[in-house]
Simulated assay, not measured.
Amino acid sequence: MIRFSLRIPEDLHERVTARAAADRRSLNSEILHLLDIALSSPEATAGLHSGDLAVPASLRGKPDSSPG
């Protein structure tokens, strides 16, 4: 299993945490479940084939400001 760090907006974290509690899952399990559902849908894979970004603009955030 691969481990990585993920930064998400506080309001999104609260929403996913609440959903995890309602579904009686850990936060990690809930995120994996939601990713699996999203990537299994035809809409998610259609955007990848056309070259469009599959991430909504509201979740793209600002470009990384770390020194390159």
Rank of each mutant, 00 (worst) to 15 (best):
V16F: 01
R3L: 10
D64F: 09
R25M: 15
D52M: 06
I37F: 14
A20I: 01
A46F: 03
G51Q: 00
P56A: 02
V55S: 06
G61C: 00
E43H: 03
G61Y: 01
S26A: 02
L53W: 05
S50L: 08
S50V: 02
D52C: 04
S26C: 04
H49F: 09
G47R: 03
E10K: 11
L6D: 01
S5N: 15
D64V: 09
R15V: 10
E30S: 06
A18F: 05
P63Q: 05
P63A: 15
L6N: 02
G61Q: 02
A44Q: 00
P67I: 13
R15A: 10
E10H: 07
E30M: 08
P56S: 03
A54F: 06
D23M: 11
S65G: 13
L6C: 08
E14D: 10
D23Y: 08
A21H: 08
E43S: 11
I2N: 13
A18L: 06
A57L: 07
G47Y: 01
S26D: 00
A54D: 14
E30H: 03
R7H: 04
S40P: 01
D52S: 13
P9E: 12
G61K: 06
D64W: 12
G61A: 01
I8L: 04
L48R: 11
S50Y: 01
P67A: 12
P63F: 12
G51H: 04
A22H: 12
R60D: 04
T17V: 13
I2Q: 15
D11Y: 05
A18C: 03
S58D: 08
A46K: 05
L53M: 03
T17C: 14
L59S: 02
L39D: 10
R7Q: 09
A38I: 01
L34Q: 15
S58R: 08
R25Q: 10
L6F: 07
A20W: 00
G68E: 14
S40A: 12
E43Y: 02
S50M: 05
V16I: 14
E10F: 04
A18G: 03
A44Y: 09
A46N: 00
L48I: 14
T45M: 02
I37E: 13
T17N: 15
R25Y: 06
H13M: 08
S65R: 15
R15E: 10
S41Q: 01
F4L: 12
T45F: 02
G68R: 12
A21L: 12
I2F: 13
D36L: 13
V55M: 07
I31N: 07
G51T: 05
V16L: 03
S66H: 09
F4N: 10
P9A: 00
S50C: 08
R7W: 06
N28R: 07
L48E: 14
S65C: 14
F4A: 07
G61P: 00
A38L: 02
I8D: 04
A21K: 10
S5I: 12
A20H: 04
L12T: 03
A57M: 10
P42K: 05
K62C: 12
A38V: 03
H13G: 12
I31Y: 07
A57G: 07
E14L: 08
P63H: 15
A46L: 05
L48F: 09
L35P: 01
E43D: 14
K62I: 10
I2M: 15
S65M: 11
I31K: 07
S40G: 10
N28Y: 04
H33N: 11
T17E: 14
E14V: 15
G61I: 00
L48W: 06
P9D: 09
L35C: 06
